[in-house]
Amino acid sequence: MSQQQPAGVIHDIGYRGYDGPRLGRGAVARALYVHSLRGAFGLGRSARAKVLPMLLLGVMCLPAFIIAVIANATSSVLTELPLPYSRYAVVAQGILTIFLAAQAPQAVSRDLRFKTVPLYFSRPLERSDYVLAKFAGLSTAMFLLLAAPLLIMYIGALLAEFPAGRETTDVALALVGAVAFAIVFAGVGLVIASLTARRGFGVAAIITVFALSFAAISSLQGIIRYVEDDATLAGWLGLFSPITLVDGFQTWVLDASSSAVAPPPGSAGGVGYVLVTFGVIGACWALLNLRYRKVSS
């Protein structure tokens, strides 16, 4: 008979312990940010996961490329781009919405579903770091998606020898507007997605909020502005859909060309749009932190 093994012994089988430097909270958050950003475009994931985001990026850039080609082909007649930079986001809102609906649940719902969130929080990572990393990652992804076509149009405009100073100012302002679009979209999308562990529900809910609110608000605005002849009320209505909200924001703050049926009414309206835009961003931040204060499901 062999010797009786004492219970509860951890055998030293010669593995070496880790005694190198341990990166802290900031490094974890940065890693999570990079991971989220890459994940939004399917990088570091399977080939099937890359298809959709890359396809959307391509579809997003295609009209910009066509616009750039048109500008160059007709540069003897035209003196500016057929479509202003700042209107691109609203024209391509369908693609932005689809990208958001596909990638926001991808960023947070799977962590909830496979219960990896508690694992994150067992590291030196605060709740707000997790929220910040996800929020920033998705915002950056949305911004890149929107900035790429703008840069293509900008290069096209420079090649067509439009006034470089004016084009640079315009594209810079449009990029600032793109930041606002990206943050508002990512915030609203993440709040919705973080409420469900099921990807499908998240996708459907985000789409509903963006597409339905835009369709309903635009048609209401149209009817109230042209049938009722009340441009002020129509302008205020734009506050109730994320897309018209940010469009109004950039119309007033950045002096962009409006794509909405009715722009913000006067300075009071403009200030209102700005306040609501920042309010929405702040509310998304607060709600996300609230959501992750306790993670059980």
Binding site: I207, T208, A215, S219
Partner: peptide, 28 residues
């Protein structure tokens, strides 16, 4: 707010109901 205006009804139902609500519902 508008009262009875058949053109408004047609535009509204066309854009919001048939244009957005039904496709979204069918999708979900």
């Amino acid at each position: 707010s508008v009262g009875v205006d058949h053109q408004v009804t047609a535009d509204f139902l066309g854009a919001v109901a048939l244009g957005a609500l039904i496709p979204l519902f069918g999708l979900i």
